[in-house]
Design a protein around this nucleic acid. Structure first.
Lengths: 249, 249
DNA sequence: CGTAAGTCAAGAGCGGTGCTCACATTTGTT
DNA sequence: AACAAATGTGAGCACCGCTCTTGACTTACG
């Protein structure tokens, strides 16, 4: 559980502060349930108030407005996804980069299919009129891509990332972006692999979004698991990851 | 312009029917503007009625409800995107499959960046409580993927689609899906290439969605055009497309 | 031509939403 | 006990989707 951000660093929390924190937690929990059931656009403060057993205007004592609750739910969802992805990646041997990549992809997909409405809030069309406060959401919101980039950088430093073939080149303006990213994140991955990593990143979420949002026609792919496994394998190749040592080899 | 679906095949339209059709067109046009400005979830029949200079209940004479208007706008957007993609692909020589693929991707991205809210309606998180009527939207909604698949199939039949390398395999249940798709659409592309085509399809929209929905952090990629061009080149390779004859070679 | 059928705009109204505000109540502290 | 802060209440505003009735109008037909 993250500590409340506004807690002063010295005093222990008073009972009232504890009760207040608990109420906010309840509001977020109820909001999460409504979000999961009816989607982001249908999230209603009045409904949350009803479930909380309180009059509608009372929740404004705890949450500034609907946007604020959306922000809390956004951070909540980002962190839950980040936790599951981190755990899935950490469950594999440190040297099994291809396996870690597969685990990352599988973890994101599993969470997305389990929480489609929350996934839509994070990675779907932006909620109209709502702009996520960058200073509060970038941290949790970048956990997955940080895990992916760390994975690729570790593989590269371990000599497990193959140089790409193909006809794609990295134009100069793009190289400038990549150099900035590399220095900001302390990476060693060279441009062609880093650019491919960006593509793999967006492609992973593209495949998951198509499945979660029902962009494939209904019944087009009955073997959704196998389709995603195939895509993950291709994307792993695309990133330059060599599969770990052959089984029983 | 597609003819109105409910027109009887014999009688010419009466003035009343013409006026009615014009009013519906106006409603769709105004709805398109509201959609583009404020997003799908904020689309309001009352606001459309105000812009139309009519009382709110009057629009229900022409449009059954909000969902119906959303459906009309969905079809409208799918067709506009499909028209632009078809035109972009058709502008290239029939044998330049790699160029056609690039043109397809560029056309989708251009439309998406020009019409982010409408793109979000088509490819973003589904509108809560709204289920698109399959019988009316699958036709327009599959135009882009049909164009992509036709492109790949044509390239394969012309011997311009290279067999893929890598470690990915097509599991048996997935092969059954692909076989069904192949027979339904009359394709010749074999499983590994068809599965890769599906990945290229989702990856293309993944890259575009990330850009349109602002999933890249602000300022992460200043060279958005070059990034997308890179991705298109890699995805073309991934699909198996060989670049057209070297320039001046 | 006159009447009946069909069509349409208008307005009231229902229940829902986000949000604000004045007021009452509870609670912790002095 | 008294006070002040925190919290809950209910009314109210403006908006939303949607329904229904009413009156006016257009069209078609006898």
């Amino acid at each position: 559980m993250p500590q409340t951000a506004s807690t002063p660093p010295v005093k222990p929390p008073t009972p009232r502060q504890r009760a207040r924190a608990r109420t906010i937690e309840d509001i977020v929990r109820l909001g999460r349930e409504h979000l999961a059931l009816h989607g982001a656009a249908a999230l209603s403060l009045r409904a949350v108030a009803r479930d909380l057993g309180v009059v509608s205007s009372a929740v404004y004592r705890y949450v500034e407005n609907r946007e604020e609750l959306l922000t809390l739910l956004l951070i909540d969802a980002y962190n839950e996804l980040g936790d599951e992805v981190d755990a899935a990646v950490a469950a594999l041997p440190a040297a099994d980069f291809a396996g870690q990549f597969r685990a990352l992809g599988v973890a994101v997909r599993r969470w997305a299919l389990r929480e489609p409405a929350r996934y839509g809030l994070l990675f779907g069309s932006p909620v109209p009129g709502y702009r996520a406060p960058v200073e509060r959401t970038t941290g949790p919101g970048t956990r997955v891509v940080y895990a992916l980039v760390a994975l690729l950088d570790g593989a590269y430093r371990a000599g497990h990332l193959a140089a790409p073939g193909g006809h794609a080149t990295v134009a100069a303006p793009l190289a400038a972006d990549l150099e900035r990213i590399r220095s900001q994140m302390g990476l060693a991955v060279p441009d062609p692999l880093l650019a491919r990593g960006a593509l793999v990143w967006t492609s992973l979420f593209g495949a998951i979004s198509f499945e979660v949002f029902g962009q494939y026609g209904a019944g087009t792919f009955a073997a959704a698991d196998e389709l995603f496994a195939h895509h993950l394998a291709v994307l792993g190749d695309l990133a330059g990851l060599r599969p770990a040592g052959r089984r029983a080899g």
